[in-house]
């Protein structure tokens, strides 16, 4: 490839963008788990109930989750600008993108949680019921520990998805590596910054995946 000049890259800006991306990832990741984990548990529990009312709750929740998951993130992000303003006071920068990231990723993570909980052996849950465990005790002491490898894998997938979401948020002034890549590479035809930004994101995703796989392996007892 000719005509690439990496010497013109502003490494200070690169570093700032990387830190911004990591911050977005961290905060949105934390809030996605805080929202998505209980939502996934509720989906799992309500989906197995025989109670008509709870079945209706499940259908409604499931429908909302599907809608949020079917809207392309880039559109969701634009649509959520007023929401972001209402929650964090701004719709741009690291802070402004977090509500959209969380609302985009939490339903996705909730589905992953629901799926991993369904993998838990029915017999073990039944044994806990037979020992007089309440629903809360079953969730805390059976479902979550037994599903731990699946949940960790789900968190890994969600974080990787969030990396690409943070990149997209560059389109609406979100900041971070994606923002850098779009501003320099797409708007100003400075390929070098774009290439480096993309490489950084690739490395980030690889690191997340490796760390996630290690944790899953560490907690798998089967």
């Amino acid at each position: 490839m000719s005509g690439l000049d990496f010497s013109a890259i502003d490494w200070q800006e690169m570093q700032d963008a990387t830190i911004a991306t990591l911050k977005m990832l961290l905060y949105s990741g934390i809030f996605t788990i805080i929202l998505g984990l209980p939502l996934g548990i509720v989906l799992y529990l309500s989906g197995r109930s025989n109670n008509m009312f709870i079945r209706v709750v499940y259908s409604v929740l499931s429908f909302v989750v599907n809608i949020l998951r079917s809207v392309p993130f880039i559109i969701l992000m634009v649509a959520l600008i007023p929401v972001s303003k209402a929650i964090v006071g701004t719709a741009i920068g690291v802070l402004g993108t977090i509500p959209a990231l969380v609302i985009g990723a939490a339903p996705f993570f909730a589905r992953l949680v629901e799926t991993s909980l369904r993998e838990v052996d029915r017999g073990v849950i039944e044994a806990a019921q037979g020992m007089g465990a309440s629903t809360l005790q079953i969730v805390m002491r059976v479902l979550l520990p037994e599903a731990r490898p699946g949940l960790l894998a789900g968190i890994t997938i969600t974080l990787v998805t969030l990396v690409s979401y943070t990149a997209m948020s560059g389109m609406v002034g979100g900041g971070g590596l994606g923002d850098l890549a779009i501003r320099y590479g797409y708007y100003r035809y400075e390929k070098e910054v774009m290439i480096i930004s993309v490489i950084f994101m690739v490395v980030l995703v690889q690191l997340l995946q490796i760390a996630g796989d290690r944790l899953v392996k560490f907690f798998t007892r089967k």
Binding site: D121, G123, V124, E126, A127, G130, M131, V142, P145, E146, R148, F219, R221, K222
Partner: peptide, 12 residues
Amino acid sequence: MIYQHFNLLSSA
């Protein structure tokens, strides 16, 4: 109660 397939917590 004990079971045919033991139903132990695999994570414990």
